[in-house]
Simulated scan of single mutants.
Amino acid sequence: MSINIYVGNLSFNANEGELRELFEQFGSVDSAKIITDQFTGRSRGFGFVEMSNREDGLRAIENLDSKDFSGRSLKVNEARPKKAMGGGGGGGKGRDGGGRSRW
């Protein structure tokens, strides 16, 4: 069973090859992706690594969380599933903001 790993506090200069190499010390890496801003193309400072072996991934998390990488202390943990977009929400007051009626 595979594992998807969140990697936060990445240096803005880090690249996906370096990220892959860092995790390959612990096992086979299926993918390494650094998330970038869609308008500027600049790194957003976090990424995801998918490893095919769950135990290898858990070992990587244990060994790499808080580790210095390119001058930054990494935040590494198992990625949470993406939440569905849309629906719900709201709250707040109605159109008139509470208070007296305008009429």
Rank of each mutant, 00 (worst) to 15 (best):
S2P: 10
F12L: 12
E78Y: 03
G90H: 05
P81C: 14
G8V: 05
K33L: 05
S2H: 04
G8P: 08
L58P: 07
F69E: 03
E21F: 00
R59E: 02
A60W: 01
T36Y: 14
G71F: 04
S11K: 06
G91W: 02
V29Q: 04
E21I: 01
N13P: 10
G17K: 15
G27A: 09
A79S: 06
G41C: 14
G57Y: 00
I3G: 00
G71K: 03
R80Y: 12
R54S: 09
D96T: 13
T36E: 11
G98E: 05
L74H: 00
N4F: 07
G45W: 02
S43T: 01
M85K: 14
E21D: 08
K93V: 12
G89M: 04
S28D: 08
N77L: 12
S28N: 07
G41D: 14
G27D: 00
N53W: 06
L74P: 03
G90V: 04
E18K: 10
G92M: 05
E18I: 11
L64G: 00
R102Q: 09
L22M: 13
R54N: 08
K83W: 15
N4W: 05
L10A: 04
E50P: 11
D96R: 12
N77K: 11
F39M: 13
N63Q: 06
G45A: 05
L19E: 02
I35L: 14
K67H: 06
G94Q: 13
S66C: 14
Q38S: 15
D96Y: 14
S28A: 11
M85A: 10
E24Y: 07
R100N: 07
G86M: 12
L19H: 04
L64F: 01
F69S: 03
S28R: 02
D68G: 11
K83N: 15
S2W: 05
G27V: 02
L22E: 09
G92S: 09
K82N: 12
W103M: 12
A14E: 05
I3R: 01
D37T: 06
G71T: 09
A14V: 12
K83H: 15
G57M: 01
G45Q: 01
W103T: 13
N9W: 07
R44A: 10
R72Q: 11
R54A: 08
N9V: 04
D96E: 15
R72L: 06
I61R: 08
R44S: 07
G57A: 03
N4R: 12
A60G: 00
T40M: 09
A14P: 08
N77G: 12
S52E: 07
G94V: 11
G97W: 15
K33R: 14
E21Y: 01
R100P: 10
S43I: 00
R100G: 13
S52G: 10
S52W: 06
G47S: 11
L58G: 11
L74V: 06
L19Q: 03
K93Q: 12
G98H: 07
G94C: 13
T40Q: 13
M1Q: 13
F69C: 05
N13M: 08
G71Q: 07
G86I: 02
S2R: 08
R95V: 13
R72V: 06
P81K: 10
I34D: 02
W103I: 13
A32Q: 00
G99I: 04
S43G: 04
G90S: 06
E50V: 15
F26M: 03
K75G: 12
S73G: 10
R102H: 13
I5M: 03
